[in-house]
Write a protein that binds this DNA or RNA. Structure first.
Length: 205
DNA sequence: TGACGCTACAGTCAGCAGTG
DNA sequence: CACTGCTGACTGTAGCGTCA
């Protein structure tokens, strides 16, 4: 961005030609899709003071950070999903589910027995819910952020991202309203984002 | 130790947007 | 048009610190 303003004496045509070249860059392109950014850019071109240049650079830095952060988050979620899938495949291949095998070595109760009666479905729910979202993360930053959430928020995230339940299904299983689940979900994600942003800024210093 | 204020969390209600 | 999901506004509650 800075090199666009290094030559104050260039003609307007040259300037726009140069800008056109940079506009092919996807990041610059998306940056310039926002009217405020265009206005700021023109302002700097017309009045290239150090203060305005700094303002433009700061705006661009913030914009670039947000893009990188969004990319980082989506990639982390994507790779975690792949790793989780690999892990599940590995486990399912290694420990195949045999419904009529005893749950404990010395016991006679089988998984099939748990499934066979409706009153035992509660036990099955507990069995399934014992797996939390923290068990499926390979990113320390996200794990750390999730540890700071309330139990309820962790539970909502686990049900949403591990078991793929929607808000209504989570609400039903936690005996809460759908809106309450949605709220907890949104709040949990916002909190994770804030914690990771703070952590990244701290590391960046 | 009780009253008070602040903060965070969790809940409901109402309304909006997207979809089939 | 009904259904689903999300969100803003508002309210209640619990926990914590401060102060008389």
């Amino acid at each position: 961005m800075k090199e666009l303003f290094d030559h104050h004496n260039q003609s307007v045509e040259t300037y726009w030609d140069k800008l056109e070249k940079h506009r092919q860059n996807p990041i610059i392109k998306s940056f310039l899709e926002i009217p405020e950014h265009i206005a700021l850019l023109i302002e700097v071109r017309n009045q290239p003071t150090a203060e305005l240049k700094k303002k433009l650079d700061d705006t661009f830095r913030e914009f670039y950070f947000n893009i990188r952060f969004t990319t980082y988050l989506s990639q982390t979620i994507y790779f975690n999903a792949i790793n989780y899938d690999k892990k599940i495949k590995l486990i399912s291949e290694r420990y195949q589910l045999v419904l009529d095998r005893p749950l404990k070595e010395d016991g006679e109760l089988t998984f099939l027995d748990l499934l066979s009666s409706s009153e035992n479905m509660e036990n099955t729910d507990i069995f399934i819910a014992s797996s939390t979202i923290g068990d499926h993360l390979t990113s320390y930053e996200i794990f750390h952020a999730i540890q700071s959430l309330t139990e309820n928020q962790q539970q909502v995230l686990s049900l949403a991202y591990i078991y793929g339940l929607n808000d209504s299904e989570i609400a039903c299983s936690l005996n809460k309203s759908q809106q309450a689940v949605s709220k907890s979900h949104t709040k949990a994600l916002r909190k994770i984002r804030e914690i990771i942003e703070t952590e990244l800024r701290r590391k960046g210093q």
